[in-house]
Design a protein around this nucleic acid. Structure first.
Lengths: 186, 186
DNA sequence: GCAAATTAATGATTTATTCAAG
DNA sequence: CTTGAATAAATCATTAATTTGC
C-alpha cells in the first residue's frame, strides 16, 4: 500500500523513496540541518508532489536525522571509552605544579580577574581566552590576565568528587574561599 | 607526535576522550562553567588519571568551551537558523519578529497539556488530540517546544528550488492566511 | 512462496539542557 | 532568581525488513 494517499490510515508518515532522497540532498548538499519555518514550508510543498506530507514530518525528519547522524558519528568515534588501562595513577600526585594563577584577592573567579588591561574599554564577554599566547610550559598563570594566586592549598590528597550537581561547590576548608558566585563578568 | 603520552613533547595538550567526556559532564551536568582555582585543581587531579594534564589546560578548556557554547548559540539565535544569508529578508520588515518558530502557549505547549496523567500508563492515546493523527489541520507546529509555527504562507504554487545552499530563502511573505493555528485540542 | 514472528529503522513525544531577558 | 525560547538527547511506538516454519 505504501503511501497511498487515499487510505492514509497509517498513524505515521511513511516517506517515499523520492522524498527521502530529496531530504537527504537538502541535508547533505544544502547543508540545511535545522530548517526554519519558512524552509520547512517550502520543503513540504515540494515534497508534497511525491506523496502526502506535512510540515511536522519535515521538521521531525530533520530533527531525527541530525540527531542520529550525530549519534552515529559519536558511536564510531567512541572507541576509547574503555581504555582505562592507563595505570599511571601510581605517581599521579602531580599536584606540585599546579598553577598558582590564582589571585589572592579573596577568591578567584578564575578568569574573572581579567580586567587588568583589557584595552580600550570594551565589555567583551564573548571570550576571555580567545587568544592564547604561547606560554605552554610554565605551569603558572595561563597568562591571560587572571593572576589569581592560590596559596597552594594544602595538598589535599583525597580530593572529593567534583560537584556533579550543584552550582556551587564544596568549599572545604579554604581560608579565603568566599566566592559565592563568581559572576565572572569577564 | 600527536598525543603520545610518553613523549609529551606536544606543544599543546591533547585531551583524551575520557577527559573530554568528564569535562563535559562537569560542565553540563555539574553546572560548572567557570571553575575556581580549587575546582580546577580537583578536576586536574582527577583527569590526570586519564592522561597528562595541567591546571591551565582545564582552565583554558572551560574558558573556550563556555565561549564557544555561547558563540554557537548566539549564531543560532541570531535571527536565522543556519542561513548565513546576510542580505536577505529585505522588504520592509513588517516587524514579523519571531521569524521562526515561536508559538504561543495557548494551544499546545505540549508539555503543559498532555503530561496530565501519563505517569501510570505508557500508552497515552492522545486525549487532547494533540497527537499526530490529529492536528493535521495545518502543516504547522508539530508541537514540541520547538514547534515550528509556520506562518502559513500560501501554498506557493511553483516554488523555486529549496535553499540548497542554505541561502536561498525566497521571501514572498504573504500574510494573507488566517492561520487557525489553534488545533483547539482541549 | 507466504505469513507469523522477530528484529531493525525511524517517525513522533517527552525531558533536560542551554543562554539570555526581565 | 525566574522565565522564555529553542533545541538536542532520550525515549516511546509503529512501520519496514528480515527470519523462520510450514
Amino acid at each position: 500500500m505504501a503511501s497511498s494517499p487515499s487510505g492514509s490510515s497509517s498513524s505515521r508518515w511513511s516517506p517515499t523513496q523520492e522524498q527521502v532522497m530529496i531530504l537527504e540532498e537538502i541535508y547533505n548538499r544544502g547543508g540545511v540541518k535545522t530548517p526554519n519555518a519558512f524552509q520547512i514550508q517550502q520543503i513540504t510543498a515540494h515534497l508534497s508532489f511525491y506523496g502526502k506530507i506535512e510540515g511536522k514530518n519535515v521538521f521531525y525528519w530533520f530533527q531525527n536525522h541530525k540527531a542520529r547522524e550525530r549519534q552515529k558519528l559519536r558511536r564510531k568515534l567512541m572507541q576509547s571509552q574503555q581504555s582505562q588501562s592507563h595505570r599511571q595513577l601510581l605517581h599521579h600526585s602531580s599536584l606540585h605544579h599546579q598553577p598558582h594563577w590564582c589571585h589572592h584577592h579573596s577568591s578567584l573567579p578564575s578568569a574573572a580577574l581579567k580586567p587588568l588591561h583589557q584595552g580600550a574599554g570594551k565589555h567583551h564577554q564573548e571570550d576571555c581566552a580567545t587568544s592564547r599566547p604561547a606560554l605552554a610550559d610554565k605551569p603558572i598563570s595561563p597568562q591571560p590576565h587572571c593572576s589569581v594566586i592560590i596559596p597552594q592549598q594544602r595538598p589535599l590528597k583525597t580530593l572529593e568528587l567534583f560537584p556533579l550537581r550543584s552550582t556551587h561547590l564544596n568549599l572545604n576548608a579554604d581560608p579565603d574561599d568566599k566566592d559565592p558566585t563568581s559572576p565572572s563578568s569577564c
